[in-house]
């Protein structure tokens, strides 16, 4: 790949590659690195499907240029599970039917992962506000909210 040279950490692994200055982070992850778990639903920063965590903060990867992740730590949906073992949040999504088509799901997971790290015991209101920037057309959100509450309970009860 041509373009600007980048050094960053991706899902815990150090990476060194380069990116075209015009490529946004979502396209870079998907097409440059083959990490197609990150989805693109609007490319104008409203739907949240493209949410990833950069330096601990959830960001919209369609609104960020790939070259901005130089020296950053990037986390995507592919990094949530431990091998084949789903994280408590992922598991709770399945148990509480927090996904249907699965298209919004990676963005939802990353937004909620960031929320649960910052706010280990969120209220339903906290959760609904946190995902108010993530659009889901399938679920009506309730399963997602229930999943986040359940995951919070699991995470706070396990050391």
């Amino acid at each position: 790949m041509t373009g600007k040279h980048l050094t960053f950490t991706l899902n815990g692994e150090p990476r060194e590659t380069s990116a075209d200055p015009r490529t946004h982070l979502a396209d870079f992850l998907r097409y440059g690195l083959g990490l197609t778990g990150t989805h693109v639903g609007c490319e104008h920063g409203v739907c949240g499907a493209c949410t990833v965590i950069v330096d601990g903060v959830p960001v919209r990867s369609c609104l960020m240029l790939a070259v901005q992740i130089d020296c950053c730590t990037v986390e995507t949906v592919e990094g949530l599970a431990n091998g084949d073992e789903l994280s408590p949040l992922q598991q709770a999504f399945s148990t509480h039917h927090g996904l249907q088509c699965g298209f919004c799901t990676p963005g939802m997971l990353m937004t909620l992962e960031a929320l649960l790290r910052a706010t280990p015991s969120p209220t339903e209101h906290d959760i609904r506000m946190a995902i108010s920037g993530n659009i889901c057309r399938c679920t009506g959100y309730q399963g997602i909210v229930e999943a986040a509450l359940a995951a919070a309970a699991v995470r706070t009860s396990t050391p």
Binding site: T36, G37, L99
Partner: peptide
Amino acid sequence: VARVEDPRLLAGRGRYVDDAV
């Protein structure tokens, strides 16, 4: 019962049309 579709989709291993190369 929990859906058999879920683990793959939750792990970011769904295969949507734009994922094909």
